[in-house]
């Protein structure tokens, strides 16, 4: 290898090292629940004090269980979100009817969101999903993604159905469908 080429290779390696750029996006349950929690600040008449999120998962799907575990670990004994503190309660999707008094459903990937979304609408409960298909299908009020960039999508019709109203500045910065 010529000396010039060696230098060029070294320079390219150095530049690549500076950026260290894996190009694929990946789900990050801990960051996504953080984003979901922070959106509560922008709800009109948003909750204050202790708020319980039902972390909805499908026990037959390892990815859903893993995400539930990530989210529960991130919430720990309570995650601050504005003037609210969010705590998690794992709820198997098939037992959503017995979730009890919760502030929101957080629906993990792989869950049959249609059924859970219907339950949320009937109970007028905010539903948030990490799977954008959930919000696109109208089962979730909101879909959140955290990597590589925070993305928030709100389904206006579903939001209206559960009586969720967001502040104007927030609505201007997210995607509505």
């Amino acid at each position: 290898m010529s000396k010039r080429l060696t230098h060029a290779t070294a320079l390219a390696t150095a530049v690549a090292t500076l950026f260290l750029a894996p190009l694929s996006a990946h789900a990050d349950g801990a960051r996504e629940i953080q984003v979901a929690g922070r959106t509560l600040t922008f709800l009109d008449g948003g909750p204050t004090g202790k708020v319980t999120f039902a972390i909805v998962y499908d026990a037959s799907k390892p990815a859903s269980v893993a995400e539930k575990d990530e989210v529960m670990a991130a919430l720990g004994s309570g995650m601050a979100a504005g003037s609210a503190t969010i705590v998690g309660k794992p709820v198997e999707a098939g037992a959503i009817g017995s979730a009890g008094d919760v502030g929101a459903y957080y629906i993990t990937r792989g869950v049959n969101f249609t059924a859970v979304g219907s339950a949320a609408k009937s109970k007028k409960i905010l539903s948030i999903g990490s799977d954008m298909a959930c919000v696109k299908a109208g089962a979730c009020v909101m879909g959140v993604a955290a990597t590589p960039k925070v993305e928030i999508v709100v389904n206006s019709a579903t939001a209206a159905a559960v009586g969720a109203k967001f502040k104007a500045a927030f609505k201007m910065m997210i995607k509505e469908i």
Partner: peptide, 20 residues
């Protein structure tokens, strides 16, 4: 709060509307 939510600064100085 908006910066914490989106993980980047927000501004209204581009169009008058809040934007990332």
């Amino acid at each position: 709060s908006l910066e914490a939510l989106f993980g980047e600064p927000v501004t209204t100085s581009a169009t008058g509307s809040p934007q990332r």
